[in-house]
Simulated assay, not measured.
Amino acid sequence: MSKALVIAIDGPSGTGKSSVSKAVASRLGVSFLDTGAMYRALAWSCVDAQIDLGDADAVAEHCRTFDLRMGMNPKSPTVAVGERPIDAEIRQDAVTSVVSQVATNLDVRANLKQRQRDLIAQGAEATGGCVAEGRDITTVVAPDAPVRILMTASEEARMARRSKQLKVAVASTRSQIVDRDRADSTVSQFTTAADGVVTIDTSHIDFRQSVAAVLRVVQEVLDGDPELSTSAG
């Protein structure tokens, strides 16, 4: 029986993992899941519903019931709560500045991790595979994924990339990069590779080279596992 090609990619902010993961999924013709967007969606939904983010129980209860819908086409991934698209809203400072309060809630993490596993399975069944990226995909959400990669980069490279994306000064991105990583690292390990996880350092390579590096790792796994090769096409 053939196995789905699940590719788990972890890493801190600013390593390029989201854009690289989408490109890799597009190249392979498989689904794509941005797990970080799920935490952002919950943060947005809590703010929209006027739920106190400091009330861990209330946030966890809202998480259990909110209607999160993730579109997994890597060429046009979408995020919605109910019928309302919130792709732009979850990238705004109002969400970025509070998302760690949601992401460090252990009950929330338990709920969203199960949702992530379900989405990965659904995406893999639909397309033969799924690229899932986030903070603890390689170790907790999909530790048995055939391909597991940790993308890293120096703090300087990460801040430079994020400032370019946001078109702001490098110094103003520090809280988004360093402070958020520090908060999230209290509940998730995403700075060092676990056993069996391949590390790709993107500090001194560009986007195209980063995509190629991931695809090389994928091809090595495919070459060594005929069952994966047949399912991935």
Rank of each mutant, 00 (worst) to 15 (best):
A4D: 14
I7R: 02
G11N: 08
S21Q: 04
S21M: 07
G29K: 06
V30H: 07
A37E: 11
Y39T: 02
D48Q: 13
D48P: 01
A49N: 14
Q50C: 08
D55H: 06
A56Q: 15
E61W: 10
H62G: 02
F66A: 03
V79N: 09
G82N: 05
P85E: 12
Q101I: 09
A110P: 08
K113Q: 14
K113M: 15
Q116S: 08
L119Y: 05
I120D: 03
I120E: 06
E125I: 01
V131H: 12
I137E: 02
T138Q: 03
P143C: 03
D144Q: 11
A145H: 07
R148F: 10
M151Q: 11
E155Y: 06
E155N: 14
A160M: 13
R161Y: 01
K164G: 10
K164R: 08
L166R: 06
T173R: 03
S175D: 13
V178Y: 07
V178R: 11
D179N: 12
V187N: 07
T192Y: 07
A193F: 00
A194Q: 03
D195E: 15
T199D: 10
S203F: 01
I205N: 01
V211M: 00
A212E: 14
A213S: 12
V214Y: 13
G224F: 00
P226D: 10
E227H: 11
S231L: 11
